[in-house]
């Protein structure tokens, strides 16, 4: 017989002679029975559509698990946590970006002073009732600080550093200086290095130990500071031939108090120093050289000319 003749027989590949010979064998009857009986075998039920739905459910379930890992761990609670974490990260990122893109602003209230360090380690000490702002983002490109009020600068060495005020601009190269601009009052004092003041289109260079003062648009020649820094850094306010008006305003800022005056000449010049911490002492320091009297009533103080009854 041919090789694998049983397989050939099932596949109807035997020749008539071969088939006839096969049928003659003793085993043929059983082979025939096996084939007949196996024809009645039914495969297990299988519904492709249903199985496909099952598969889709499996795939959907798989998506909420980590793929690839042998162990099946329900990641749902973790995913929820991850979502919250992602939201927080996004919020922080957005606010960080927002804060970064916004100008950095530091301000002091009355009776308050603060020290602020700039990105290049330059230091700004703000006197009472002042505000500075600058762009943190652009700081590396241009060191520009906008100032309203009064501040003392210790500038780190580097490129041009400038202070913008409503009245004038101050340029520096690694130095310590004080800038005060309040209303129509503009004063710059240089304690170290070199400062260039641009006021009313005019540039003026201030070496260490000199000051620039302009009141009401008029440049007033002043002597330079003799100290290492402005007096307010030592909790004092010093004035040299400054109209009383600005002295009283400074007093208001240092003690967060309302000042009223009766028959007082606010243009008289004041030279002297008052304490920024002791109110009674400061009042005396201002009133006696100016020949004034005062009434202190909590948050209000009224100055009178001494002649007034």
């Amino acid at each position: 017989m041919k090789e694998n003749y049983l397989a050939k027989w099932l596949n109807n590949e035997l020749s008539e002679a071969e088939l006839a010979a096969f049928k003659e064998t003793a085993e043929y009857a059983t082979y025939k029975k096996i084939v007949d009986a196996s024809a009645r075998i039914e495969g297990p039920a299988y519904d492709s559509a249903k199985a496909y739905k099952n598969l889709q459910a499996r795939l959907a379930a798989k998506q909420t698990e980590t793929p690839g890992k042998g162990k099946v761990i329900n990641m749902k609670p973790v995913r929820k946590l991850m979502k919250i974490a992602a939201a927080i990260v996004l919020l922080i990122a957005v606010s960080f970006w927002f804060a970064n893109s916004q100008d950095e602003t530091v301000s002091t209230l009355y009776a308050e002073s603060t020290t602020h360090t700039l990105p290049d380690a330059s230091e700004i000490i703000l006197n009472a009732g002042s505000e500075i702002s600058y762009s943190k983002k652009k700081w590396n490109k241009e060191r520009v600080v906008s100032l309203e009020g009064e501040a003392f600068f210790k500038v780190a060495k580097g490129e041009k550093f400038s202070v913008d005020t409503d009245l004038g601009e101050v340029w520096v190269l690694g130095t310590q200086f004080n800038v005060e601009q309040r209303g129509d009052y503009f004063e710059v004092s240089c304690y170290e290095g070199l400062v260039r003041v641009i006021f009313d289109g005019v540039e003026k260079e201030l070496p260490a130990g000199s000051s620039f003062l302009a009141i009401n648009g008029k440049i007033i020649p002043v002597e330079g500071p003799v100290t290492d820094g402005p007096s307010w850094l030592n909790q004092e306010s010093s004035f040299k031939s400054i109209p009383l008006k600005y002295v009283l305003e400074e007093f208001e800022r240092q003690f967060n108090i309302d000042v009223e005056t009766r028959d007082v000449d606010l243009n008289q010049l004041f030279t002297g120093t008052f304490s920024n911490t002791n109110k009674e002492l400061a009042l005396q320091s201002i009133s006696s050289p100016s020949r004034l009297t005062y009434d202190l009533d909590g948050e209000n103080v009224i100055f009178y000319a001494e002649e007034t009854p």
Binding site: E3, N4, Y5, L6, A7, L10, Y31, I34
Partner: peptide, 8 residues
């Protein structure tokens, strides 16, 4: 075919 033959 071999498997089939042997199976039968």
């Amino acid at each position: 075919e071999k498997r089939m033959h042997l199976a039968l």
